[in-house]
Simulated scan of single mutants.
Amino acid sequence: MATVTQMKCACDACVCVIAIEDAVKKDGKNYCSDACADGHPNGEDCGHQGCAC
């Protein structure tokens, strides 16, 4: 049986793949940043190069 250690950020617009152990956890979901976890309330991006969320 394989163990999942990485997954895509739960933000629909985000393309980041994150290590589950490093994820920002909110409402049972894993996000790559606080901006994604909070739904980009002020239009800020996630801060990761190559992602346009």
Rank of each mutant, 00 (worst) to 15 (best):
H48Y: 11
G50D: 10
N30M: 12
V15L: 04
G47D: 03
M7C: 13
N30V: 11
K26A: 11
T3V: 14
C36E: 01
V15G: 04
Y31S: 09
A52L: 02
P41E: 12
D45V: 07
G39S: 11
C9R: 05
A13I: 11
K26T: 02
C36D: 07
C36N: 00
Y31M: 00
C53A: 09
D12E: 06
C36S: 02
C53K: 02
I20D: 09
D22L: 15
C11P: 04
A37H: 03
D45Y: 03
N42M: 08
D27G: 03
Y31W: 08
D38P: 03
A35T: 01
V15C: 04
C36L: 09
Y31E: 00
D12P: 12
I18Y: 12
A13G: 15
A23W: 03
Q49S: 15
E21W: 07
N30H: 15
H40Y: 08
T3G: 13
A2P: 14
V24S: 07
V17A: 09
A13L: 15
A37I: 07
E44T: 04
T5N: 14
E44H: 04
C16T: 13
D38H: 05
A52N: 11
D22Y: 11
D27N: 15
C14W: 03
C32P: 02
A23E: 02
E21H: 14
C32K: 04
C53H: 05
N30E: 13
C32G: 05
K25H: 05
A35G: 08
D38F: 04
V24N: 06
H48D: 03
A23Q: 03
D45C: 01
M1Q: 10
A35H: 00
C14N: 08
